[in-house]
Amino acid sequence: PPDIPEVILKLLQLEPDEAQVKARILACLQQEQGKGRHEKLSTFGLMCKMADQTLFSIVEWARSCIFFKELEVGDQMKLLQNCWSELLVFDHIYRQLQHGKEHSVLLVTGQEVDMSTIAAQPAPSSNTLCCVRRSVVLALTRSRLDRHEFVCLKFLILFSLDVKYLENHTLAKDAQEKANAALLEYTVCHYPHSTDKFRQLLLWLAEVRALSMQAEEYLYHKHLSGEVPCNNLLIEMLHAKRT
């Protein structure tokens, strides 16, 4: 079998322990549920908490990531401010891809939620349902995405900011070029019968980005309505690009 590009091998090694992440987030949510009646979060609030905790894991992963860890904090912040929602959505989509079901969603905690349950949430729920449905559709249309491609795309998302916005142009450009080259090499060698899989994956990634922008706007709208729990990383990231 053809070799795996070194960049991808390194990224695979840096993948967080799923079981650990799951356990930590579950424990956090259970702590929320243990609170008194007046402090208890709504279902939507719990989902926000889940996203918030997943963000912590994402930041931890980024910190140890090749190239990223060489950057100054200023540049690291810019990269994460640019891509945090896309990373969250991408993580969610990949999970649905593995879950492989059209009418239910698998959460980071391992819980499965039926689409009908989501549809039954208090109004306005149509946007939630639309976003979730689209994420599942995106997952299903991308039925061939293996773990090597997943880690490489995740890294590309992390470094998807135009380098002109960063201090360390050289390092960021190097990261982008190496990751693109690795993905191209990998897809050409491992899926020789798939016409131009590399370009298809990048086009698909653009759709993931579009969905994440939509989800962010929706979340911001919910925040202005006072429905998103405050004082957390999620809110901070939401505000980072909006003065």
Binding site: F56, V59, E60, R63, V73, Q76, M77, L80, Q81, N232, L233, E236, M237, H239, A240, T243
Partner: peptide, 18 residues
């Protein structure tokens, strides 16, 4: 008050404790 993303900065800056 402009958001300076203090929590993110802290998470990126902090030392790992074993």
């Amino acid at each position: 008050k402009k958001n300076n993303n203090a929590l993110l900065r802290y998470l990126l800056d902090k030392d790992d404790t074993k």
